[in-house]
Amino acid sequence: MHTLIVTSHPDPDGLTHAVARRIADGIAETADATIELADLTAEGFDPRFTQDDLKGHHRQAPFPADVLAEQARLDRADALVLVFPVYWWSMPALMKGWIDRVFTGGWAYDDSSGQGVLKKLGHLPVHLVGLGGADERTWHKRGYTEAMKTQIDTGIFDYCGAPVLSSTLLLETDAGDAQTHLQTAHALGQRIAITPGAAAH
């Protein structure tokens, strides 16, 4: 099983990246596992949806080379894990821009037939890990948990047919109890490695 773990945070020594590494450690305990860690910040991915992206969307020109490279990286993966800090009750702009540009019509979905949406990523199980500073009471009080699931799990991945097999929130990350979150991340990696559907192709 080959897992692609994508992160978006400017501090390589911060908790977001530490959580991603612990997830990778948990997955790596499986004998046949391979892992690729993609740090969108360090790699300098450009999240801006440009005229060239729009031309690709309208089938007027090929998609930009960096988009095609990311799609090829996803095509090699048996599972996708997104690890991100929660900014304003969603993912950071860099990660959202990665999705905006990479999950293109014709590759992630196809709505050009007039017969509804063809979901093309049913072979790619997804695991979401968000790190938030607020406590659980705040999340439930305002309905943020369900709002994020509606926006990300359903609005993005279900639209493309990619099954979200787990959606984890690590909360109160500013409280200094990083060890608990790292233990949770390691256990999540172990579960990802043995989850049915995590090696669907």
Rank of each mutant, 00 (worst) to 15 (best):
L124G: 04
D153P: 04
T34D: 11
T180F: 10
A18I: 06
I192T: 02
G197N: 06
T16D: 04
I5S: 06
I192Y: 06
W98E: 00
I152H: 09
G155R: 06
K120T: 03
D110P: 02
E70H: 14
Q179N: 09
T50K: 11
G155W: 09
P125R: 08
D25L: 14
F49Q: 07
G132A: 12
V129D: 12
E36G: 08
I156M: 02
Q179Y: 04
G122N: 12
G189H: 10
Q179P: 01
A178E: 13
D111K: 10
G44H: 06
A187I: 05
L40P: 06
Q179D: 15
G133W: 05
Q151K: 13
L4P: 01
V67W: 00
A72F: 06
S112H: 13
S166I: 07
V102R: 01
Q190D: 01
A187Y: 03
E136N: 14
G114S: 06
K149S: 03
A187L: 13
I194K: 07
A77K: 07
Q151R: 13
A187G: 07
L169W: 15
Y109M: 02
T173W: 01
A162H: 04
A193V: 08
A38I: 06
R76V: 00
F103K: 05
V81H: 02
V81D: 07
R22P: 03
T154S: 07
D177M: 10
Q115I: 00
D52W: 00
D153V: 15
V129A: 11
L170I: 05
A65V: 05
V126N: 09
T138L: 13
Q151E: 14
A38V: 12
F157C: 08
G56W: 03
A65K: 10
D100L: 02
G122F: 01
R22G: 01
T195Q: 14
T173E: 09
E146Y: 13
L121G: 00
T30I: 01
T150W: 07
A61G: 12
S90P: 00
A24R: 12
A178C: 05
L171R: 07
R137E: 15
A18Q: 14
D78Y: 04
A147T: 11
T184M: 04
L169K: 12
A108M: 09
D135C: 03
D32Q: 11
T184I: 08
S167D: 10
T50M: 02
Q51N: 03
L80G: 02
